[in-house]
Computed example of a mutant assay.
Amino acid sequence: MARSRCASVLPGSDGPVGGAAEAEQVARAIGFPLVIKASAGGGGRGITVVERAADFVPALQQTSHQARMVFGNGEVYLERYLPAARHVEVQILADTHGNVVHLGERDCSLQRRNQKLVEESPSPGLDRALADRLGELAVTGARSLAYSGVGTMEFLVGPDGTATFMELNARIQVEHPVTEMVTGIDLIREQILVAAGEPLRFTQDDIRPSGVAIECRSTPRTRTRDSARHWVC
Rank of each mutant, 00 (worst) to 15 (best):
Q191Y: 06
G197Y: 08
D127K: 07
V101C: 04
E120P: 09
R171T: 10
D160N: 14
V174G: 12
R80G: 04
T140L: 08
N99W: 04
L126A: 01
L78W: 10
M153K: 01
L193K: 12
D95F: 11
E119A: 08
L193A: 13
I192N: 02
T96G: 12
V174R: 13
A195N: 06
T164H: 12
P159G: 14
Y81E: 02
V139G: 00
E154G: 04
T179C: 12
A146K: 14
L187V: 02
A94K: 06
Q173D: 10
Q111S: 13
D95A: 10
A94R: 03
V118K: 08
R80K: 15
N169F: 02
V178Y: 09
T164N: 10
E79L: 08
G125H: 15
I172N: 01
I172G: 11
A146I: 04
F155N: 03
F165T: 00
F165K: 00
P199R: 11
E79W: 13
E105V: 10
N99H: 15
V150P: 13
L78H: 07
V174Y: 12
P177S: 08
E120F: 10
R86Y: 08
I192C: 03
N99Q: 15
R106N: 12
V101G: 01
L130Y: 00
I92T: 03
I172Y: 00
S148A: 15
P199S: 14
A195W: 02
Y81C: 04
A142T: 04
G151A: 11
L117E: 05
S144I: 09
H176V: 06
L78F: 07
S109W: 13
M166Q: 01
Q115W: 13
T179S: 15
N114T: 12
A138W: 04
V178L: 13
F155M: 03
S148C: 14
G158R: 15
Q91C: 05
V100R: 00
R143V: 06
M153Y: 00
K116S: 14
I188H: 01
L117R: 00
P177M: 06
V150R: 03
E89Q: 12
E89L: 06
G104T: 02
D160T: 11
E136M: 02
A138M: 07
N114G: 07
E105G: 10
H102P: 09
T152F: 08
V157C: 05
G184T: 14
V178P: 10
Q191G: 01
L137E: 04
R189N: 07
E190F: 01
V100Q: 02
R143F: 02
V118D: 05
S109V: 12
G184V: 13
R143P: 06
T162F: 07
T152H: 10
A146Y: 09
G98A: 07
I172M: 13
N114M: 08
R112E: 03
T96F: 03
V139D: 01
R106C: 11
L145Q: 14
R80D: 05
G158H: 04
